[in-house]
Amino acid sequence: MLRSLQLESEKCTGCLQCEMACSYENEGVFNPSKSRIKVFTFHEEGRFAPYTCSQCAEAWCLHACPVDAITINPGTGAKDVSEDVCVGCKVCTIACPFGTVNYNADSGKVIKCDLCGGDPACVEACPTEAITYVDASNAGMDRMRAHAAQTIKS
């Protein structure tokens, strides 16, 4: 059964543990700017929203890639970037309408969430269960969509 990241902004306290865990797991450094999950702050309301790739079915990034560097991981359903194949052209970064594929100037390649191969570090790091890894067909996902529509709208 495929699972997805469920992001519940109302539970997020903005502690950035997820960003730390993500950058450490994937880049070997504690550096939020290298994180594939990002917590955005709504300054006026003092609210936070964790945000990352939803592994969308349309897979804009995958279709835009000129060299077949993005593939669907059969185990997790994630759209994985193969570092060896990626040439760093950045077309996926403009093609993804969610803005969740980003260019990493240090490596000259793009990075995006790959669900850590099925054991997402951000989930483990989140102290408030604002990020959970749930059954993709779970009703919670639908609730999250509906809910987010209300809570995120200002």
């Binding site: 945000y51 939803s54 309408p97 999250m144 969509r145 509906a146 529509a149 995120i152």
Partner: peptide
């Protein structure tokens, strides 16, 4: 921009009206 985006899209990561 990101605040505007997140606030305006239907739900986090699910604005697949493209």
């Amino acid at each position: 921009l990101m605040e505007a985006y997140l606030s305006s899209t239907q739900a986090l990561g699910f604005n697949s009206k493209v």
